[in-house]
Design a protein around this nucleic acid. Structure first.
Lengths: 158, 158
DNA sequence: GTTGAAAGGTGCACGGG
DNA sequence: CCCGTGCACCTTTCAAC
């Protein structure tokens, strides 16, 4: 395993790839004053140590027919293990990401759906929450009206 | 402006770029049985019409020193405009994204911080919510214990 | 960290369906 | 409209330093 330290140049490379993951290693090298080969080695190392987990396209989901986004807060029966929560949600195609939380509610589930009717069906599926012994005793769904990206999503954190 | 219709091949291209945004147009072309040039033209068109808004690196924030993630629910005073909410949150480097919601709470703010002390300072800043006339009358912060990516984040939705 | 050369990807004009 | 081809140019990759 390569060294884990992330120096200032690594941070700039990470920021540049966060802003545009399809930039070439040569261009990044130009921007951080390094040769293409040295830049590529740093990118490879950042991937190896797991600082960079991958690269993804940022989509306009509304244009792909998934116009509605929502968060559903979940409350579980006493004794439910946090790991059970994840198991309760696999195989839900509408799931974007799910969070286990400290406090009340116990989990937050983010879903993307076509319309309110679709949302209703998804919430029904979530509420069943059969798998893994997780017993859902309450849900509260919040419909997203608008979303704004922050600096932390654009690589401006360092 | 190019055509807005997204056919089955476009959807596969979007899914492939969502799974790995750094794949070359030639490789994607091989996977969807199209020439490199035709594939590139489709990718360019998907970007032009805004289906693909950009490309970003997926990071392990814990390895970059931002180990703690949290959601803060916000409640606003009556008469607050939803647009005021976004204006109240600009210039918060710890902000990942913010959502305006239908129902109660009025907004959900996602932040990434170094530790609980840092979180305390960020929540204090959010609670002030000076800008744009947004008056925050209550907050509730949920600390993230764990996160799981769903199919909708990996391009498996189509 | 650099250089350099081979392999492969990109960008563009052209022609065909 | 959208596809493929061919070619010049640029990037990536890897050895050697």
């Amino acid at each position: 395993m390569p060294r884990l330290e992330i120096d200032a140049i690594d941070q700039r490379i990470v920021a540049l790839l966060t802003a545009d993951a399809r930039r070439s290693a040569s261009e990044i090298g130009r921007l951080v004053s390094l040769s293409p080969a040295a830049t590529k080695r740093r990118i490879d190392r950042l991937e190896e140590v797991g600082v960079i987990k991958g690269y993804t396209a940022v989509l306009d989901h509304a244009k792909l027919g998934h116009a509605l986004e929502a968060f559903t807060e979940l409350r579980f029966a006493p004794g439910t293990q946090v790991d059970d929560i994840d198991r309760a949600l696999v195989d839900l195609p509408e799931l974007v990401e799910s969070f286990t939380l400290a406090g009340d509610p116990d989990a937050l589930v983010r879903v993307r759906v076509d319309d309110v009717d679709h949302l209703k069906r998804v919430i029904d599926r979530v509420r069943r929450g059969r798998r893994g012994g997780a017993k859902i005793i309450g849900t509260k769904t919040l419909i997203v009206l608008g979303r704004t990206a922050g600096p932390g999503e654009r690589g401006e954190t360092g």
